[in-house]
Amino acid sequence: MKLNIKNETSRLRAVVLGTAESFGGTPSFADAYDPKSAEHIKAGTYPVEADMVKEMEAVREVLEKYDVKVYRPKMILDYNQIFTRDIAFVIDDVFVKANILPDREQEIEAISEVFGLIDPDKIVRLPEDAHVEGGDVMVHNDYLFVGTYYGSDYPNFITARTNMKAVNYLKEMFPQKKVKSFNLKKSNYEPRDNALHLDCCFQPVGKDKAILYKGGFLNLDEYEWLVNFFGKENIFEITRDEMYDMNSNVFSISEDVVISERNFKRLNTWLRENGITVEEVPYAEIAKQEGLLRCSTLPLVRD
């Protein structure tokens, strides 16, 4: 397989879609990885396996409708393998294994089938102290957008997943890219004020448009840089509650087709008004774990 990811919206040909089978059930409150999961564990509303399996199957059906080759992880008993975007990402023709939370290391091993299809020289891993997850990394043609957290209290946030060491390493690894970092708002306790990854508050869609949440950025000048880059007229600004519901975490099959959650009425209307076909799926249960469609997909090949 020849990897090719230049941006978020070119025609998708191959992708790894996570799996909710044998996901391990509801974790203890103390073991929650993010504040939204913790909120639902405490409330007794954490999603159940059968519902999430149905949601992911709906996505698989849409992908296959558009002739996308779909790979799935090898199932690990009682182990959450939904969010494949966390574990790796592709930049141009290079497959980067992420340095994720130690408890999740087995997730990378579960996609060994994919590794076997890739030139081993094109598979790399960042140094152990360079923390990065795929939700924080977006390829946008000549640019590489990377979400991070600049604060010296970075180790205190379980929600801070990508550090500046990773940003700097990506600059060295991809000198042909203009690497732009963004200081994201983090909270261990309030999911409405926590941008877990960059794709929780921003994502390009279509030919020249973007979904954006101002409150996810700690540095106003970085938010304004994105507004100027895409043009205010091309941006769909989401609210705090829409960010909480993960409106920016949709997934593009092409510039003209986006998979979106069926309850995102305002966003889906805007997408259609801008000439984009919206394939609506149910994904509200998976969203309870502070991840949505982009989080559960790992693109390998786009045209």
Score class of each variant (00 low, 15 high):
A20K: 06
E21C: 15
E21Q: 15
G24A: 09
G24S: 11
G24F: 08
G24I: 10
G24Y: 10
G24V: 11
T26K: 15
P27K: 14
P27L: 10
P27T: 11
S28R: 11
S28Q: 11
F29Q: 11
A30D: 15
A30H: 12
A30E: 15
D31K: 10
D31M: 12
D31F: 04
A32P: 04
A32S: 08
Y33V: 14
Y33M: 03
D34Q: 06
D34W: 03
P35I: 08
P35L: 06
P35C: 08
K36R: 10
S37E: 07
A38L: 09
E39T: 06
H40E: 08
I41G: 03
K42E: 13
K42I: 00
K42T: 05
A43L: 01
A43G: 02
G44Q: 02
T45S: 14
Y46V: 00
Y46S: 03
Y46M: 07
Y46I: 02
P47K: 04
P47S: 07
P47F: 03
V48A: 14
E49K: 02
E49F: 05
E49A: 03
E49W: 01
E49Q: 10
A50G: 08
D51P: 04
D51G: 07
M52N: 03
V53I: 10
V53F: 01
V53K: 04
V53R: 00
K54A: 13
E55N: 12
M56R: 05
E57L: 14
E57K: 12
A58I: 15
A58Y: 11
V59I: 13
V59Y: 02
R60V: 07
E61F: 04
E61H: 04
V62Y: 00
V62D: 00
E64R: 06
E64G: 05
